[in-house]
Amino acid sequence: MNGKSCVRCGNKAQLKRPKTGELICKECFFVVFETEVHETITSSNLFSRGERVAIAASGGKDSTVLAHIMKVLNDRHDYGLELFLLSIDEGITGYRDDSLESVKRNKEEYQLPLEIVSYEQLYGWTMDAIVAQIGMKNNCTFCGVFRRQALDRGCELLKVDKMVTGHNADDVAETVLMNVLRGDIARLQRCVAIVTHDESGGYIPRAKPFKYTYEKEIVMYAYFKKLDYFSTECIYSPNAYRGFARELIKDLERVRPQCIVDIIRSAETFQFDTVNIRKQVISRCEKCAYISSQKICRACVFLEGLNSGKAKLSVFESEGKTQKSKARRVEEEEKVERSKVSILNADW
């Protein structure tokens, strides 16, 4: 790349843009990166003046760059937003405790108020304790359900109008492929929306300003801006099936970087037969009053499972009738295991 010049300003090029392959200098990269996010925000009318906006901050690269850029763009283009950092403490020793430290440093650097909501305080369980009970399998299902609710509770505490998350183009493309592979048509329809919300106002709208931003460019931006972020993956096993999709996206990007944005484009142009999509009827959970499509929300079902020691069962039960047979099988397996334990105890 030595001696090549930036396609925008003619100065010495310092990098090749992952999204377009253009040779560009560092300063021009900052400009195009920030401008593209700004354009996404304005063309999709993500915010209105005077809104209170929570930035979901995990301390990882995406959310750190998101916090930085929201602050920069809010000041530069005078969006008139009041920004907050919102973090969830899942209670994962050696992972979340360290990443929360970087969120706390971001709080100081950007001078933004920070709210931390913990699983322990909301549910009485940390992820460490949950994994100790249920093992590594399916623990992401618990974490996902709890996090979703915890973020909403955090938004309620902060009294914000919207929440932004650091989901990037790679994440969205990966989710599109996952939903095609799983045949989840309802999620396929939702996953490319730049703002997801519930029409009845059940939960705070969530926006993805990085929907068209490549992960590699986010890393590049964080690297050149020397942003302070935490870069370790969660210590509990990642979802294997999702891992396949992620790997394909990475391979595709190597062959043709435009694939990522083209996958998103494809999903945006899918036409859905409304007859085929079961419309969710949103009501309130009888136990905790959180929005739910069932009488009892999944978080409460899981909690009951955890508290009664039948947590594995609750994963299947919460997924509806079709999973009942699986649930029965798990129940039987658990019975066998319990009897084994009692036999062992008897031996003692």
Binding site: V176, L177, V180, L252, R256, C259, D262, I263, R265, S266, A267, E268, T269, F270, Q271
Partner: peptide, 14 residues
């Protein structure tokens, strides 16, 4: 073919 066309941005015609 379906996944290829999705990757090439032709989702509409799938």
């Amino acid at each position: 073919r379906v996944i290829t066309e999705i990757c090439k941005g032709r989702g509409f015609n799938i």
